[in-house]
Amino acid sequence: MRRKLLAALFCAALMLQLAVPAGAAGSVYFTAVNKNVLKLSDATMPFWSGGYLYVPSSIFTGANRDLQVGVTVTSSGGGTTLLLYGGGTEFQTLSFDLSKDFAVDKNGNMYFQKAIRRGGVTFLPISLVARVFDLVYTVIEVSRGYLVWVRTHSADMSERIFADAASYQMESRYSQYLKEQGQGDASSGEESTGGAAQTTSGQRVYLCLEAADGSAVSALLDALDQYGSQAAFYCTVDFLEREGALLRRMTATGQAVGILADAAAGSTVAEQLAAGNAALEAATCGRTRLARLENVSDQTAAEVEQMGYVCLWEDLDRSIYPLSNSSAAEVLARRVGERSGSVSVWLGDGATAAGLRAFLTGLRQSGDRCLALTETT
Score class of each variant (00 low, 15 high):
213 D>A: 11
161 I>S: 14
285 C>F: 03
194 G>V: 10
283 A>E: 07
152 T>S: 14
210 E>T: 12
193 T>D: 12
285 C>Y: 05
201 S>P: 02
157 M>W: 05
152 T>L: 03
252 A>G: 05
260 L>Q: 06
222 D>C: 02
139 V>M: 12
216 A>S: 07
210 E>L: 12
258 G>L: 00
279 A>L: 06
148 V>M: 06
164 D>P: 01
252 A>C: 05
270 A>F: 02
182 G>I: 14
142 V>H: 02
200 T>F: 01
279 A>H: 09
265 A>C: 07
170 M>G: 10
189 G>K: 03
152 T>Y: 04
247 L>E: 01
256 A>N: 04
220 L>Q: 06
200 T>G: 01
243 E>C: 12
253 T>M: 03
231 A>K: 02
216 A>H: 00
219 A>D: 13
162 F>R: 05
201 S>A: 15
204 R>W: 07
161 I>C: 03
179 K>M: 14
147 L>A: 03
251 T>A: 03
166 A>S: 15
187 S>L: 14
159 E>Q: 13
232 A>K: 00
194 G>Y: 10
240 L>N: 03
235 C>M: 09
244 G>C: 08
198 Q>E: 11
216 A>D: 02
155 A>V: 02
213 D>Q: 13
158 S>V: 03
260 L>N: 13
199 T>C: 09
138 T>D: 14
231 A>Q: 00
234 Y>E: 05
193 T>S: 14
169 Q>N: 04
201 S>M: 13
196 A>L: 08
273 L>V: 09
143 S>N: 09
192 S>C: 08
243 E>S: 13
233 F>L: 07
142 V>Q: 08
191 E>T: 13
145 G>H: 03
253 T>L: 12
286 G>T: 10
186 A>P: 14
165 A>D: 07
176 Q>V: 13
198 Q>P: 00
215 S>D: 09
193 T>M: 10
183 Q>W: 15
168 Y>E: 10
144 R>G: 07
175 S>N: 13
177 Y>P: 06
161 I>F: 11
254 G>C: 03
154 S>K: 13
262 D>A: 02
241 E>A: 15
261 A>R: 12
177 Y>W: 11
183 Q>A: 09
